[in-house]
């Protein structure tokens, strides 16, 4: 154990000084850089994967937001969709789910006819309360529709290229080429697809592609009296949907499956699968 010499002390001091100065420079530099990056123009669209090298995002990328806190469960969207798209009985391109929570922990989910005739308290379905014999303590409605996933398994599995995505991000089915194998129906984690009983081809929500390409809103959005459905161009930072996506915490269904839905939800409960 020798006492440190002057020389050693000064070296230690020198090192300390270096460290202090260095870290100050580092922190300051970092702040400058961060500020600079914040001021850089934002390339790309929030929530969208980056475009391919040398390419830009399309000018129109559609997005959909469902605000479950606003849904009143009137079923207008379902009726509008069914009429607009001539959806066959027993199938739904969009539907509304009714979630009811009971004090004993039981969760009852219900969607009679997809909500086409609305909902009532007297639970027409056989699996519904009465038997539970309690007053519910919590409840809400959740509208569902095709999620138009960015990494969708339905396009992945279609053997003949009958399921495809338009540049605007809408997932569609070419009924002229669909062979009706049903693999896309199986691969959709959300039950959004069905085989049309008449055409014998896969069918699904198109976000009313025939309407949105004419400047109209999808029927379910247009006729939702509660403004629970918001549709628009996420590529346009000034659109209503971009504003909503920027100012809300949104979620997607079954995010763990990695399908990257373009339909996003506000106020999604963990019981909603």
């Amino acid at each position: 154990m020798t006492t440190p010499t002057r020389e050693e002390l000064s070296r230690r001091a020198f090192l300390r000084k270096c460290a202090e100065q260095g870290s100050a420079t580092f922190v300051f530099g970092g702040m400058v850089l961060t500020t600079a990056m914040l001021r850089l123009p934002q390339e790309g669209v929030p929530g969208e994967p980056p475009p391919k090298a040398g390419k830009k995002h399309p000018e129109v990328i559609y997005g959909f937001v469902v605000d479950t806190t606003k849904c009143i469960g009137c079923g207008s969207c379902v009726r509008a969709c069914k009429a607009e798209n001539n959806v066959p009985d027993g199938y739904n391109r969009t539907w509304v789910e009714q979630y009811t929570f009971y004090p004993n922990g039981e969760v009852v989910v219900n969607s009679p006819k997809g909500g086409e005739d609305g909902f009532s308290d007297d639970f027409p379905d056989s699996n519904q309360p009465g038997e539970i014999g309690q007053r519910p303590d919590r409840g809400f409605f959740v509208p569902k529709l095709c999620n138009h996933c960015i990494d969708t398994p339905c396009i992945q599995v279609c053997p003949v290229g009958a399921s495809y995505r338009t540049e605007e991000g809408v997932v569609l089915v070419d009924a002229e080429r669909c062979i009706g194998c049903g693999y896309c129906v199986q691969s959709c984690p959300f039950g959004s697809r069905y085989l049309h009983p008449v055409t014998k081809t896969a069918d699904k929500c198109t976000w009313c592609y025939h309407r949105i390409t004419k400047g109209l809103k999808p029927a379910c959005v247009e006729y939702c009296p509660a403004k629970a459905r918001i549709f628009g161009n996420v590529s346009d930072p000034n659109s209503e949907i971009s504003h909503i996506l920027a100012t809300n915490r949104v979620q997607v269904l079954k995010s763990y499956l990695g399908t990257n839905p373009r339909t996003r939800y506000i106020g999604l409960d963990s019981e909603v699968i």
Partner: peptide, 24 residues
């Protein structure tokens, strides 16, 4: 079981390379 068996050969004419069924 196909809805459109007459289009079955499409899986060889225009096979989607990401589809397991197209490989069949």
């Amino acid at each position: 079981h196909l809805g459109h068996p007459e289009r079955a050969f499409s899986i060889m004419f225009t096979p989607n390379p990401t589809s397991a069924t197209a490989v069949f």
